[in-house]
Simulated assay, not measured.
Amino acid sequence: MIDRYHWLELVGIYIGIALFLFFILAPFIEGFLVSLKPLGLLFSTPYSFWPKNGSFDAYFSMWQSVPMLGLYIFNSFFISTIITIVVILVVVPAAYAFARFPFAGAGMLLGGFLAVNMFSGAVLLIPLFRLMRTLGLLNTYWAMIVPGAAFLIPSSIWLLRTYLMRIPRELDEAAWVDGASRLYTLRRVILPLAMPGIVVISIMTFIGAYAQQFIFALTFNSKSEFMPLPIGLFAFFGKQEVVWNELMAASFVGILPVMIVIVFLQRYLVAGLTAGAVKQ
């Protein structure tokens, strides 16, 4: 028999869930309400949480305030997509190698991957700038794609390696007995089983790439046609004031591509997060 919760325990559980959701969603709710308020009423006293005379005017006027905002959103989506593709192409074979083939120096390499993630992008801006200039990548999409992928690959290798280690080695050995090559085994045997984990890594990489573009774009790019969304949002910060309602409206419109990707892939995300939780 499954133990049933006492009603007091259920009340405590739901109160805990409600508090958790409140602290998670409150900033988003407040940001959305700010986008509905007229700019002159944002700092009125007493402060009103619910917008009086609220409207969606900021969602229309923001396009006039920053005419290239649509291009910035496209650039962010494009850069994040390319970074995700590059990371997956590198991470899948690398994680498979670390998970299946022990070799000298593997532990040192994995430790080095963790060490790379300890460095902030700001610390490496000067050497990265010199590298981008030497390679002729300044003022191009690749100036943001290359360092973006480099910072996301190490953690992705660690995560996918752990996932692949849960897949029984006997599957590889059975494929080899049947005459399959290592590459064929990876492509036809391991990848279908690892797809939930790969989807999780892809989503995390896409979100990470979408969030880290500001400092790289500001340092390695000076052309407006290649600027990502964070630079477009920075344009709402004027010398005298910040257009908060349009800034919030642009932020919500800018995260729509990420939300669409997450909603579309959420069932794969849940499958990947729960895979391996039950011992077969």
Rank of each mutant, 00 (worst) to 15 (best):
V11E: 00
T162N: 15
T205S: 12
M195D: 04
A235Y: 15
I167G: 01
E241Q: 14
V263L: 15
F60H: 13
V200F: 01
A277M: 14
A275K: 08
I201Q: 03
I145V: 14
G254F: 09
A217K: 08
L131H: 10
L131K: 02
T84M: 02
V242E: 01
I15N: 02
H6W: 12
M165R: 14
Y184E: 13
I24P: 03
V261Q: 00
I88Q: 02
V92N: 05
A194H: 07
F113M: 13
F237Q: 14
P168N: 05
S224P: 11
M165P: 02
A174R: 03
T81N: 04
G232D: 06
F28H: 10
L39Y: 10
Y163D: 01
S224H: 13
E241M: 13
G12C: 11
A209K: 01
A211C: 12
M144P: 05
L138N: 04
A99W: 08
L233G: 08
F119C: 08
W244L: 11
V91L: 07
M144C: 04
M165W: 07
F43T: 08
A150M: 05
I126E: 09
P67W: 12
S120K: 11
P230D: 12
A95Y: 06
I24H: 05
Q212D: 15
K52S: 12
P196G: 07
T81A: 01
L269W: 09
Q280Y: 13
L42D: 05
M227C: 03
W142F: 13
L19W: 08
Y72T: 08
G197K: 01
L273V: 06
I167K: 00
L42A: 01
A99V: 00
L273F: 07
P127A: 08
I215C: 09
I207S: 08
V90W: 04
